[in-house]
Computed example of a mutant assay.
Amino acid sequence: MRLPSWLSQHLAALRALLVFTVLLGLAYPLALVAAGHLPGLNDRADGSLLTANGRTVGSALLGQSFTDVDGNPVPRYFQSRPSAAGDGYDPTSTAASNLGPESVVDTIATDPEESTQSLLSQVCARSRAVGELDGVDGRRPYCTADGVGAVLAVFRADGLTGRVTRVVSVNQAAPATPFVTSWQGVPVELAQPGEDYVAAGGLITPVRGDAPAEPAVPADAVTASGSGLDPHISPAYAQIQVNRVARQRGADPAAIRRLVDQHTTGRALGFMGEPGVNVLELNLALDEQFAAR
C-alpha cells in the first residue's frame, strides 16, 4: 500500500530528526566528554581546578582577587591585575571597561555615587596605590601627586586662540590643591561638581608633569584585561611585589624570586604573547613553602 505523499514527507522528516538527534545530541557530546578525559586533557576539561588542603580554591584559568573584606590588598600575597568583570573576576560578567585613550576627564558630582573616574584617573589612582603598597615610585606621566589625571580645561578669549582667561583642573575638586598653581599666568581653579567644562568651551589639556618616561609600576598593574578574567600578571609586576611578600612571610627575597621564576610561563609556541605569572598558583606555592608569620 502506497502512503500519501504528505505522510511520506512527514515520516522522512521524522527519521532525519531522529538520526540527527542521535548523532548531534548524543554521540557528538559523549565523544567530546570522552576526549576530555584523555590523559593530558582531563584536568583542563574539568576547569583546571586548584585545591589546597583538600578544598577547591579556584581555577588556574581564572584570575581572582587577594583582598580583605574591605577590598584592601592582603600584603602577604601577590596581587592580581585589576578586573572590570562585574565586581572583579566575575565569570558571569566578563567584560572590559570600554574606556579608551581619550577618557581623561572625570565626572565630578555632589553625590559620590554619581561620580565616575576616567580611564586616566583610574590608572593614576592604581599606580599610586601600587607604589605605596610595594615601596616603588608610583608616579606616571599625566598624573597628579594625589592620583588623578593631570588635565586642565583652558579657556581662551577667542575660543581656540587668544589669551588665556580661565584655567580649571577638571579632575580635582575641593579640598584638593591644584597640581599646578597657574597656567600661562592665570591661576588654576578646582573643578566644581556638576560642571561640564568641555561643553563650556574649555580646551582639554593633559599635562605630562615630571614623572619618569618608564614608570616603575608596569601597565598590567594599572589596567584590566579585555576579559577581566586574566589569571596572569607580568614578571615585572611580580618582581616589584617580591620584597613586600618576603617581608610579610619572613622569607629571603631571593627564595621568593626563585618561586616566581618557577611559576613564570613563556610565550605560547615560543613567539605568541608575553611571559606571565599565574598569581593563584604562585600564592598557593607561597602558602605551602613560606607560611605567613
Score class of each variant (00 low, 15 high):
residue 223 T to H: 11
residue 132 E to V: 07
residue 22 V to R: 13
residue 53 N to V: 00
residue 155 F to I: 05
residue 233 I to D: 10
residue 218 P to G: 10
residue 245 V to L: 08
residue 186 V to Y: 09
residue 267 R to N: 10
residue 274 E to C: 00
residue 253 P to W: 00
residue 279 V to S: 04
residue 198 V to S: 09
residue 271 F to C: 02
residue 30 L to V: 15
residue 59 S to A: 05
residue 273 G to T: 11
residue 69 V to F: 13
residue 97 S to E: 12
residue 56 T to V: 14
residue 33 V to N: 13
residue 113 E to H: 07
residue 269 L to S: 14
residue 143 C to A: 11
residue 133 L to T: 13
residue 67 T to I: 11
residue 134 D to G: 01
residue 138 G to Y: 05
residue 65 S to Q: 09
residue 114 E to L: 14
residue 85 A to G: 06
residue 187 P to M: 14
residue 227 S to P: 05
residue 86 G to L: 00
residue 287 D to Y: 01
residue 116 T to Q: 12
residue 26 L to K: 06
residue 139 R to S: 14
residue 59 S to E: 12
residue 9 Q to N: 01
residue 72 N to W: 01
residue 29 P to F: 10
residue 76 R to L: 09
residue 269 L to W: 14
residue 212 P to R: 03
residue 283 N to V: 08
residue 258 R to M: 00
residue 193 P to Y: 02
residue 73 P to G: 09
residue 213 A to C: 00
residue 120 L to N: 10
residue 151 V to A: 09
residue 229 L to D: 04
residue 120 L to I: 08
residue 73 P to W: 02
residue 54 G to L: 04
residue 219 A to R: 14
residue 285 A to R: 11
residue 94 T to P: 00
residue 211 A to S: 07
residue 273 G to R: 10
residue 128 R to N: 00
residue 291 A to N: 07
residue 216 A to C: 00
residue 197 Y to T: 12
residue 91 P to L: 05
residue 64 Q to F: 02
residue 186 V to K: 13
residue 226 G to C: 05
residue 95 A to P: 00
residue 172 Q to C: 01
residue 204 I to A: 02
residue 222 V to C: 04
residue 158 D to Q: 12
residue 197 Y to M: 01
residue 11 L to Q: 07
residue 130 V to D: 14
residue 218 P to D: 12
residue 139 R to E: 03
residue 206 P to I: 11
residue 62 L to N: 04
residue 189 E to I: 02
residue 43 D to V: 15
residue 291 A to Y: 04
residue 111 D to T: 03
residue 182 S to Q: 15
residue 255 A to H: 01
residue 140 R to F: 02
residue 32 L to T: 06
residue 11 L to D: 01
residue 198 V to K: 12
residue 138 G to M: 03
residue 6 W to E: 08
residue 25 G to H: 13
residue 131 G to F: 06
residue 47 G to L: 11
residue 89 Y to K: 03
residue 7 L to T: 10
residue 45 A to R: 12
residue 261 D to A: 09
residue 191 A to S: 13
residue 15 R to D: 00
residue 290 F to W: 06
residue 104 V to A: 07
residue 84 A to T: 15
residue 86 G to H: 11
residue 26 L to V: 15
residue 289 Q to M: 03
residue 174 A to K: 08
residue 30 L to Y: 14
residue 199 A to R: 04
residue 151 V to F: 07
residue 251 A to M: 06
residue 182 S to Y: 05
residue 167 V to Y: 05
residue 105 V to H: 10
residue 4 P to H: 13
residue 277 V to N: 03
residue 218 P to Y: 09
residue 170 V to S: 04
residue 42 N to W: 12
residue 135 G to W: 08
residue 291 A to T: 14
residue 255 A to S: 09
residue 251 A to Y: 04
residue 108 I to P: 02
residue 87 D to K: 09
residue 134 D to S: 04
residue 29 P to Y: 10
residue 238 A to M: 10
residue 34 A to H: 12
residue 6 W to Q: 03
residue 170 V to P: 02
residue 97 S to T: 15
residue 53 N to A: 09
residue 42 N to A: 11
residue 74 V to L: 15
residue 151 V to Q: 07
residue 200 A to Q: 15
residue 115 S to F: 07
residue 48 S to G: 09
residue 19 V to W: 15
residue 63 G to M: 11
residue 9 Q to W: 06
residue 290 F to I: 05
residue 5 S to R: 13
residue 224 A to S: 15
residue 181 T to H: 11
